[in-house]
Design a protein around this nucleic acid. Structure first.
Lengths: 166, 166
DNA sequence: TGGTGTTATTTCAACGTTGAGATTATCAAT
DNA sequence: ATTGATAATCTCAACGTTGAAATAACACCA
């Protein structure tokens, strides 16, 4: 029961038996999984005419609670992208009627991005099937394995300084 | 000692206590880790005037063993990108003198991409410090945690069908 | 109240990938 | 040999991100 990374490790063991390449067993798997899972999510969201990044923005606003609005800066920290990318995303989603820009009364440099009624309805509609789809993708792990996996990933993220959503 | 995903889960628990969003604890962490680790690797490779994708191509060829050559198709399956992306990468690396295209004697549709001497020397030079850098990024895990983590990720990858490098 | 440094957003050119189509070659069966 | 289906690579326009510069507003303190 091996995966593509087992093959990679076997190749290195043959070519460079002097090196212990164990980190590749983790780094390579995180990288490949991220790509595979992205593809699956992309396919899922296509059924709702949504890009994955659109759902991410909707979900970030939704889970922030009423009035479902955040500054552009908070959104780009949550999405781990640059400010230019967030400006672009807000533009596109605003023209689709999913979010709207509202002025920030406390700070005129800031804008607040708010879910429209349509955006709120859409994220509420998609959320449950999305979680069910994610659960399907993770179904090969039993509950104990899931917990251990989540705990190890948390340790790693925290050690890399990922402790805030902005 | 929490991470950004713990905050995300807490937000969902407050906003949608009726839903069990556990899959996000794994999917969200894989996605964020992948981005963070990519940034770290990018920074590391910059010291060698290398893009991360360039190193990936060099390493894929290197670990395939002498004569250090693979078809374009094998490279794009290993890298999990489309054929157009690989054509572009080969072009750029060939003009940098790191690889060369050689005809495939058995199949004239195929090309074989071979490490040049310079490419081979470069990957040999970078390999050890790269692994040391990866080990540093994973230093927060003790050896037992590493093994469990790698095993869980392997289970997931295999269940998603990632069982070959092409 | 003026000056200096910092922060939030937008703009834009450069970059790399995708996805689809075009081209050329192989394979299987007739 | 010819046809049709499949496969490998290349081409290219569309897309979204990055990274840096521009703009505007805030904060602090002299």
């Amino acid at each position: 029961m091996g995966d593509a990374v087992d093959l990679l490790l076997a190749q290195w063991a043959r070519e460079r038996p002097d090196l212990d390449v164990w980190p590749m067993g983790i780094m390579g798997r995180i990288s490949r999984l991220s790509r595979l899972l992205d593809r699956e999510l992309k396919e899922f969201f296509a059924a709702y005419d949504l890009e994955r990044w659109e759902f991410d923005v909707l979900a970030t606003l939704r889970r922030s609670g009423p009035p479902y609005e955040l500054t552009a800066g908070a959104l780009n920290r949550a999405a781990m992208v640059t400010s230019g990318a967030i400006t672009n995303r807000i533009d596109r989603m605003a023209s689709k009627g999913l979010v709207e820009r509202v002025p920030d009364s406390g700070d005129r440099r800031s804008i607040r991005v708010r879910l429209t009624e349509r955006g709120l309805a859409l994220v509420n509609e998609v959320l449950e099937p999305h979680i069910a789809n994610e659960a399907r993708l993770l179904a090969s792990l039993d509950p104990r394995e899931r917990d251990h996996l989540a705990a190890a990933l948390r340790t790693l993220l925290a050690s890399l300084g990922d402790t805030t959503l902005g």
